[in-house]
């Protein structure tokens, strides 16, 4: 099978930042917590490959640990969305038109009325800011996204004859959902998961930029940008690198999503078969 170009390009980009995040677990070029005023605002050099910030921290190390923060927050948030949203969507589709379906759908409407930022604001106002807040805020918003995608795709499958055949064989709705519906919407969920992952990274960056996400001393791309902004007149290059890190990661994931869609889309495959 030929892999789409986008998938390869996206995989390389996203893989690069995933690798940086994983490496940062065991090793970074410099300590990201230690401040060194003597080394502040250095230009890139052999010692500091990407230079240093206003507190003398190594930017490469911060970007590596920032990747870890971003990817972890977005990944867990997607996980929340899938673990809660997919079963809800399957349940709603399996009991189409019932009270349960109606409750799930209205619940979705309700959550859609709370943008991630509003949830984060509410949580922070009461519990104070943290990375966990960001995860919860983004994760909650992911739930209706996955529920809706799952329900929509499942509903169209429920009208197919093979579902009817399974019911004739005496299989119950739950079993049919797991055995026949879920495997056939998996492609769609993988693609949606990639999209939500990239949206999660953008959302995490925004939340930590306004101070509602990961707190110091944990480095995060959003806060690196917020700090860089204060020195934009004197050091205009400072906001460039963390921003590029966000753009490249999100771009990589989006390209992967598009590539996966091309690879897995049943409509395209039918043409090929």
């Amino acid at each position: 099978m030929r892999l789409p170009v986008q998938l390869i390009l996206g995989g390389v980009l996203a893989g690069l930042f995933l690798a940086l995040a994983l490496i940062s677990l065991v090793w970074t070029p410099h300590d990201v917590v230690a401040l060194s005023i003597a080394d502040r605002l250095q230009a890139p050099s052999a010692r500091f490959l990407l230079g240093t910030d206003h507190l003398g921290r190594d930017i490469l190390s911060m970007i590596m640990v920032g990747a870890r923060t971003s990817l972890a927050v977005a990944l867990v948030a997607v996980g929340i969305g899938i673990v809660v949203g997919v079963p809800l969507g399957l349940l709603a589709a399996a009991t189409r038109g019932s009270l349960l379906d109606e409750v799930v759908m209205r619940g979705n409407d309700l959550v859609f009325a709370f943008p991630s930022l509003v949830i984060a604001i509410l949580i922070t106002a009461v519990f104070g800011p943290s990375a966990v807040n960001a995860i919860i805020a983004i994760g909650i918003f992911n739930i209706p996204v996955f529920a809706r995608v799952t329900r929509g795709a499942a509903l169209s499958l429920w009208t197919l004859d093979y579902i009817l055949a399974a019911r004739v064989a005496g299989k119950g709705r739950a079993r049919i959902s797991v055995e026949h519906i879920l495997p056939n919407i998996l492609n769609l969920l993988i693609v949606q998961g990639t999209i939500q992952f990239s949206l999660g990274i953008l959302a995490e960056a925004a939340l930590s930029y306004v101070g509602l996400g990961a707190q110091p001393p944990t480095p995060s791309w959003g806060r690196m940008l917020a700090e860089a902004q204060t020195m934009i007149y004197t050091n205009p290059w400072l906001p460039v690198l963390p921003g590029l890190a966000i753009v490249l990661t999100v771009l990589g994931l989006n390209l992967m999503g598009d590539g996966l869609r091309d690879l897995l889309d049943p409509r395209l495959r039918r043409v090929r078969a």
Partner: peptide, 10 residues
């Protein structure tokens, strides 16, 4: 594709 990937505040 690039436009989607750019955070608006950046």
């Amino acid at each position: 594709q690039l436009g989607i990937a750019v955070p608006n505040f950046w």
